[in-house]
Amino acid sequence: MANMKEIHSRMKSIKDIMKITNAMYLISSSKLKKARKSLLATEPYFDKLQETINDILLVAPHMHQIYFERREELEKADRKRGYLVITADKGLCGAYNHNVIKLAEEEMAKGDNNFLFVVGQVGRQYFMRKNVVIDVEFLYTAQNPTMYRAGEMTDIILEMFEKRELDDVYVIYNEMVSPLKAETQIKKLLPLERKKFERRAAGIPHAAFYPSAAQVMDNLVPNYVRGLIYGVLIEAFSSEQNARMTAMETATSSAKDMLRELDLLYNRARQAAITQEITEIASGAKCAQKS
């Protein structure tokens, strides 16, 4: 009998959890719909932005501009690397956070002077526990990205780069390649690289920069970085919702599988208990008849 009770309470707890996973599935699928819409709207901009900046870097003349500073005089070990790591605000989304954190840690193993800007609570908590140097005041949520938030992040990062507190800046995030596949990406934000050799190989002349190359770059680079961060945030957000939706779907279906199995066990235990009871009664009756 105790077995039956145990199975019953186990089934109840699975049912309760299933209610939660199912609700989360519904929530994330509706959030995904919204995120997908903004991703679809922003993707042309994001792609064109990268294409155009590549194009511009191809035709840019030589100039002394801070965002092009490669600081080659620094030893490799002395370089201060900044990483903008984009995680989710919550867990329960499969390997989403784990993948980003893993790649970030692999990258961080390359040098000692690492500085992290973490978006999202999960990554923040993780790196704080690990005692990694992170920007404590870089408090931005991963949810519903806006251009304004991307602009603030850009200001912080560019300022640190200008002050030489950072020498290389990367961004690490999950990209949704297809609804079934997410890929962890790393992109270099700064410094920009002028494609001198490729330009010469292609035989393209320099383009005119108006009013001046330096002035254009002063305006263009913050704009580009902001656009890129915005695009990355949007991409990551919809990837997060997608990951959560898939994870919750799997959780719900595996809960259903478990319930089916437990149901069988429960019925079997019930049957056994009934059979036992009948046998007991029957043998008891037999005994009573004999005497």
Partner: peptide
């Protein structure tokens, strides 16, 4: 206008 030279500006 059409046939403008290659240019980048803000």
């Amino acid at each position: 206008l059409p046939n403008h030279e290659a240019m980048v500006t803000c």
